[in-house]
Computed example of a mutant assay.
Amino acid sequence: MITPSSPSARILAADDDHSALRVLDRILARGGFGEVRTTTDGTRVEALFREFRPDMVLLDLHMGAIQAPEVIRRLRALIPPEEHVPILVVSGDLSDESRLAVLSEGAADFINKPYSAGEVMLRVRNHLQTRLLHTAVREQNRTLEARVRERTEALERTAGEVLERLARAAELRDDDTGLHTRRVAELAGDLARAMGLPDGQVQALRLAATLHDIGKIGIPDSVLLKPGRLTPEEWEVMKSHTVIGARILAEGSSEVVRLAEHIARSHHERWDGGGYPMGLAGTDIPLPARIVALADVYDALTSDRPYRAAWSVPRVLEEIRSLRGTHFDPAVVDAFMDAVVPSLHAREAA
């Protein structure tokens, strides 16, 4: 570890006065600093900085063709925002104007010429100590951030597992395998990605979609498990699973639960306004619900039900095409046909 007097601390010193630079080099050597790179050419400071990666720069105010403020500006562009590399300006003519010029570019301190060995070592060690503390705090912050990320990811995994098991508990009431919610969630995620949603939203939608039928918990078995067609009265009861689901998920604090609430309420709405429970139409229906609506219908029609056998995939695709612009959002259908269906075929072939 670098300490304020460590010989491993790297110092870059630049001064166009050869004799003054030799004096500074000897002072630093006597102070225990063996990693010192020097130059009398101001135009080489930037290249040496890139190569040497110093812990500190000592820079003469007047460097011939290039002045200290310009050199500092270029060096600051090379230093990452989270890193602290002190730049100390040395000069025998530190007027107020000169001080303001270099301070405005990011100089950390000044050292007067002719050099006082005591002053040089005191300022160098103080600023190396500042860099050391800054680096230690930065590393500690990185460690803490990594721990927070790990714990957050663990909590998210736990929350996701709880939501998935809750969805499976509801699904098992009318699906012995409990796989419908998983298939709908996977298909909805594929559709969301095909429509260009960011990865974070895709993952949130995939998890939220598992809860689209959570409201079925509140539907009586006599209706939910009836093998034949429902009466008009029973159908009204069945439709209420959307409202029940939204009520169960209402006022959630997480993005996923809030998203799941919208999906549970609106995944049976239709593009033409003929759906339920609110009769929403077009883009008034939340996009996640429009996506899940298609995924839900596709999986339902390609799966066996107590009252009918599964449809063939070609028949289901033709049905979905026929419902483009009436039941389903045209953009969702297009994304499904163009991007998702080919991947489904590829999986089946594999």
Score class of each variant (00 low, 15 high):
G274Y: 04
L100I: 12
R44S: 06
V237D: 09
I244E: 09
I217M: 09
P4H: 08
L207A: 14
H18I: 12
L249A: 05
L61G: 07
L100C: 12
V36C: 04
G64H: 01
G279P: 12
V237M: 05
G118D: 14
V292R: 06
P330I: 06
G32R: 06
L294K: 07
L344K: 08
M121E: 01
E318F: 01
L259A: 10
D190T: 10
R22W: 07
F110M: 02
S104K: 13
A154K: 11
V256M: 11
I111Y: 09
M337H: 13
G282E: 03
A101W: 00
V313F: 08
H212Y: 12
S312N: 05
R308C: 01
L61E: 06
G273M: 03
R321D: 04
R30Y: 03
R151M: 15
D199S: 12
A13H: 11
V45Y: 03
R131W: 00
G34M: 13
L61Q: 09
R321C: 00
Q140L: 10
E318G: 02
L103F: 11
V341F: 03
D284E: 08
R149F: 14
V89G: 10
E255T: 15
V257N: 09
P314I: 10
L155E: 13
A20R: 05
A77M: 04
R247Q: 15
L128H: 01
Y115R: 00
E70V: 12
R193Y: 13
A260L: 14
I79W: 01
S312T: 14
D93K: 09
R247M: 15
D299E: 13
S240N: 14
R99N: 03
G273Q: 02
P81Q: 09
R347W: 04
I66F: 00
P220G: 04
F110A: 04
L94C: 02
L103S: 10
A65H: 05
H262M: 10
R151Y: 14
L230Y: 10
Y307V: 05
A9R: 03
A192Q: 12
G196W: 03
R10E: 03
V45C: 03
S6Q: 01
T135P: 07
R315K: 14
E251L: 08
A185H: 07
G228D: 04
R193Q: 15
V243Q: 07
S104Y: 09
E261N: 02
F328N: 01
T3W: 13
D93H: 11
H127C: 05
I214S: 13
R74K: 14
A209Y: 00
Y276W: 15
V90F: 10
R76M: 06
E161N: 14
R305Q: 15
D15F: 00
P198L: 07
A194T: 02
R168N: 07
S5R: 12
L21I: 00
N126V: 07
A65P: 09
I72F: 06
S91C: 09
T152D: 13
G118W: 13
P286T: 02
L155A: 07
E318P: 00
P4C: 04
